[in-house]
Design a protein around this nucleic acid. Structure first.
Length: 590
RNA sequence: GGACCGGUAGUUCAGCUGGUUAGAAUGCUUCCCUGUCACGGAAGAGGUCGCGGGUUCGAAUCCCGUCCGGUCCGCCA
């Protein structure tokens, strides 16, 4: 070993000891007669001291060193005359007796500090330098802790880690596959797994009973702050279980991780049906850190059954008379919003991404009077009636959207989150964990004019809804469940289909011919004929789980050592890139 | 496929209602400084204003196109 200690461990207890440290020059302070160097490694920072009076040559050498030089230094641990209470090693410094430059460094393109001056782009290009920064390094070290806690829990509960292949077969349904051309079978392709879904089910057929894997998955879809083309899942599956068993097991896993990594005892997860989530929060992944539930003022859509109290129609206000759904939220204490603020909010909801036609409001003034954007059509009593539906109090602001059901619900959901953020209600220290349950089995795809599996095609349906499969597929509920924390979908799971005829029926409902089903999924249909046990499971987005547990945020790139950018490019490698003509030829391309 | 924001010194940004030599901070270089810890002080170097075209007497600034980055919608079983 080139060193006897690390840069994070020496304290007042080590005074007088001769030590050798290695690390990077983080910063130096040249005072003329003496020079200080902050030496950094993974573990911390230790101050080196050079004095012109006692070690002239060493001191002169030290003054010439640049940032990020790699140094090896030997000296004596000594108590500082001026202590720094802000750092763990602040009571001591090394009086340097020997100094060796192990490697020089060019001046880095950005500062390697907790608050770097570098932009995202530069930091990605020089990711190996960015990873020297404490916040990013800590994220990765904490990620390791999360993985350890996960493995510990699963091992203790009898789960076996079994690896599954990456070079597999392209399947229809779901996300776009990344494909790999085969050299040995020219013109044919492997696909990289979107998840090990079918393999884990086959492992259940094999009798493994309890399986897990922390495994890379690949989806060739557009990216987001919380989506990478390759990402990591905690993939899990159990046999001989019912939905309740699976939920208990994995709720336990999440709690174990929060306890181990953050020292937090989470309370029992809340539960909510998909229908309620959509109705009250406008999304299938509600952020429950704040209330501000959506209140329906009129609902003539199929989900409202054409019934539901209607307190807004019949006032000669065409927009509201014509709307399928009218709903709103109550922003507490916002009645003082200025015209400008309301105009900004209106512009916000009218952006194409939100797509609302406009924004109605009712100010419940502090003096008890009501002022709305549609005063022309509504008298004070009618406004009062609406305000009551929101349980609004003086000082509150009611925001109202109207239009077609689906779009209006989504817009209300987005507006709710926006107001939550504006009002600082999305507390970074709060964790609201929720199971969303009873998802629909199918969703209608307007482009292809057919039903798609909402979760995936191996999800079983609720027995009591079986009669609806042929008559009203959209109303069939799945045995599917999601874990949602603070509005982030962390995981998704279901009880699977485990017999051939049901699986064939599912494929048929999805529009696959028996031939197609057999060509694409024959292996699993066959397996179901050899004693497949009832089984179910779940998969967690590990990157999101880490960003959530570690810093309660929804941005995963800083929790991945070498992430890709917005367009799926690796800025550091400059990939994807062209390949040699020779390689192409071997692969039968072009 | 679409919407919005951004691209100016090594870096982060200001300048943008067109007008003399494009600024600040930080980093970098040199010098001074014996208890600093974001050390301090002095001086200096550093620019294809992303790229192409247009409008104009004159463009970092206005217009069009294009490339790149970011956030989001669609998409993501």
């Amino acid at each position: 070993m080139l060193r006897t200690h690390t840069c994070g461990e020496l304290t007042i207890k080590n005074i007088g000891q001769p030590v050798t440290l290695c690390g990077w020059l983080a910063r130096s302070r040249d005072l003329g007669g003496m020079t200080f160097i902050d030496l950094r490694d993974r573990y911390g920072i230790t101050q080196l001291m050079f004095n012109m009076d006692t070690h002239k040559e060493l001191c002169e050498q030290a003054r010439k060193l640049g940032r990020e030089f790699v140094l090896k230094t030997t000296g004596k641990v000594s108590e500082r005359s001026n202590k720094n209470s802000k750092m763990p090693t602040g009571d001591i410094e090394i009086i340097v007796e020997k100094l060796e430059v192990l490697n020089e460094s060019k001046t880095p393109p950005f500062t390697i500090e907790d608050e770097s001056d570098g932009g995202d782009d530069l930091r990605m290009k020089y990711r190996y330098l960015d990873l020297r920064r404490t916040p990013v390094r800590n994220n990765l070290l904490q990620r390791h802790k999360v993985a350890q806690a996960v493995r510990e829990y699963f091992d203790a509960n009898g789960f076996a880690d079994v690896e599954t292949p990456f070079l597999i077969k392209s399947t229809p349904e779901g996300a776009r596959d990344f494909v790999v051309p085969s050299r040995l079978s020219p013109g044919e392709f492997y696909a990289l797994p979107q998840s090990p879904q079918t393999f884990k089910q086959l492992l259940m057929v094999s009798g493994f009973d309890r399986y897990y894997q922390i495994v890379r998955c690949f989806r060739d879809e557009d990216l987001r702050a919380d989506r990478q083309p390759e990402f990591t899942q905690i993939d899990c599956e159990m046999s001989f279980v019912e939905q309740e068993d699976v939920m208990n097991m994995f709720e336990g896993m999440v709690k174990h991780v929060f306890k181990k990594v953050r020292g937090l005892e989470l309370p029992a997860f809340k539960r909510m049906t998909y229908t309620d989530a959509m109705k009250y929060y406008g999304v299938d992944k509600p952020d429950l850190r704040f209330e501000m539930k959506i209140v329906e003022l009129k609902n003539l859509s199929p989900s409202g059954g054409g019934k539901g109290e209607d307190v807004v129609s019949g006032k000669n206000f065409k927009v509201y008379d014509d709307a399928e759904l009218i709903g709103g939220i109550c922003a507490k204490g916002c009645a003082e919003y200025t015209r400008k603020q309301l105009d900004e909010l209106t512009d916000w909801v009218k952006r194409p991404q939100i797509g609302a036609g406009g924004l109605g409001y009712i100010k419940f003034n502090a003096d008890g009077t009501l002022k709305s954007s549609f005063d022309k059509f509504f008298d004070e009593a009618s406004l009062k009636k609406i305000a009551e539906k929101f349980s609004a109090k003086p000082g509150d602001l009611i925001l109202i959207l109207a239009g077609a059901e689906e779009r209006t619900r989504k817009a209300l959901g987005a507006l709710r989150l926006e107001m939550g953020s504006k009002l600082g209600l999305r507390d970074k220290n709060k964790f609201e964990c929720l199971w969303v349950m009873d998802f629909p089995l199918f969703e209608w795809n307007e482009e292809e004019k057919r039903w798609f599996a909402m979760h995936h095609p191996f999800t079983s349906w609720k027995k009591e809804d079986e009669g609806l499969l042929n008559t009203n597929p959209g109303a069939v509920r799945a045995n599917a469940y999601d874990v949602v924390i603070n509005g982030v979908e962390l995981s998704s799971g279901s009880i699977r289909i485990h017999n051939r005829s049901q699986q064939e029926k599912m494929f048929k409902l999805l529009g696959l011919t028996p031939e197609e089903a057999n060509y694409k999924f024959g292996f699993i249909l066959n397996a179901f004929e050899y004693g497949a046990p009832p089984h179910g499971g779940i998969a967690f987005g590990f990157d999101r789980f880490c960003s959530m547990v570690i810093n309660n945020e929804d941005y995963i790139r800083d929790y991945i050592a070498f992430p890709k950018n917005n367009s799926g490019r690796d800025i550091m490698l400059d990939s994807p890139s062209d390949i040699d003509a020779k390689q192409k030829k071997e692969l039968g391309l072009k």
